[in-house]
């Protein structure tokens, strides 16, 4: 049916090929150099990877479409740096498959939200935002606290992430499900988790409920790690100095009287 018995008509094929050539060059030229970019941008050898629980939380963030209203990209503008913290560096999202920079701030930027509020605040806020911030227009996510997190197949998720370039070890993949549970169960044995993911891994009952690991646990664990996987942007003196000298920042601060 796909027609070898139709003659290949020259004119329409030439037109099609011409369209492809004219159209594809622009993207190619802009995107190709970005894959050799690792040589020129900052690097962070100490950068941590998402734990299984944080990755599960990130997937909930994606599933609920949080990125539609919250950006995770602080631009090199003075007011943004003052409002949200040091501007985002490329290296900070190098393990983000996909990136969640966002395009709209119906709510505030979340690139550095980690650690700014307590777990209790996040849990209460996600359950009903208007209990904590009366004017908020954020949706309620009460069911996250009631839904148990599916941890059984998290090893598959880590394996897929490794396939696209995130350095998860075999031990991380093998223990993914157990590590996810351990991170939200501080009373249990968490030595393996901490050994695999580092001393700074946050082990807490994020949603305040010790009995189960809920989707709320995962999402709060993810929110609390935002901006904390890499310390590259965390040297305030250096970052602010850079923002002040970047031409972009000066341009953006023009509203200042």
């Amino acid at each position: 049916m796909f027609g070898t018995h139709y003659r290949i008509e020259r004119k329409s094929v030439i037109l099609a090929v011409a369209i492809m050539i004219v159209a594809s060059i622009g993207g190619l030229i802009e995107i190709a150099p970005l894959f050799t970019i690792d040589d020129t941008v900052e690097t962070d050898p100490d950068m941590r990877v998402y734990t299984p629980l944080e990755l599960a939380g990130r997937n909930i963030y994606i599933r609920e479409g949080c990125y539609a209203c919250h950006s995770q990209m602080i631009r090199t503008l003075q007011d943004e740096v003052e409002r949200y913290g040091p501007y985002s560096l490329a290296v900070e999202s190098k393990y983000d498959h996909p990136m969640l920079w966002g395009s709209k701030r119906t709510g505030p930027d979340l690139a550095r939200i980690g650690g700014k509020y307590s777990d209790q605040w996040h849990t209460a806020h996600l359950t009903n935002p208007r209990d904590v911030v009366p004017q908020s227009i954020m949706p309620r996510y009460g069911w996250l606290g009631r839904a148990q997190l599916h941890t059984a197949h998290l090893g598959d998720d880590l394996r897929a992430m490794r396939a696209v370039g995130v350095p998860y070890t075999d031990a991380m993949i093998a223990n993914a499900a157990a590590d996810a549970v351990a991170q939200a169960s501080p009373d249990d044995d968490t030595a393996g988790l901490v050994e695999r993911y580092g001393e700074e891994t946050q082990v807490r009952t994020f949603d305040g409920d010790r009995r189960t690991v809920s989707e709320m646990d995962a999402l709060v664990a993810y929110l609390q790690i935002l901006g904390k996987l890499s310390k590259a942007a965390e040297q305030p003196a250096k970052a602010v100095a850079a923002a002040a000298t970047a031409p972009a920042a000066a341009e953006g601060g023009q509203a200042r009287p």
């Binding site: 030229i29 802009e30 190709a32 150099p33 050799t36 970019i37 040589d39 020129t40």
Partner: peptide
């Protein structure tokens, strides 16, 4: 590799 990247960027520009 640095040369490669600079070359690509120069070409792109």
């Amino acid at each position: 590799m640095t040369i490669d990247h600079h070359m690509l960027v120069g070409f792109a520009k």
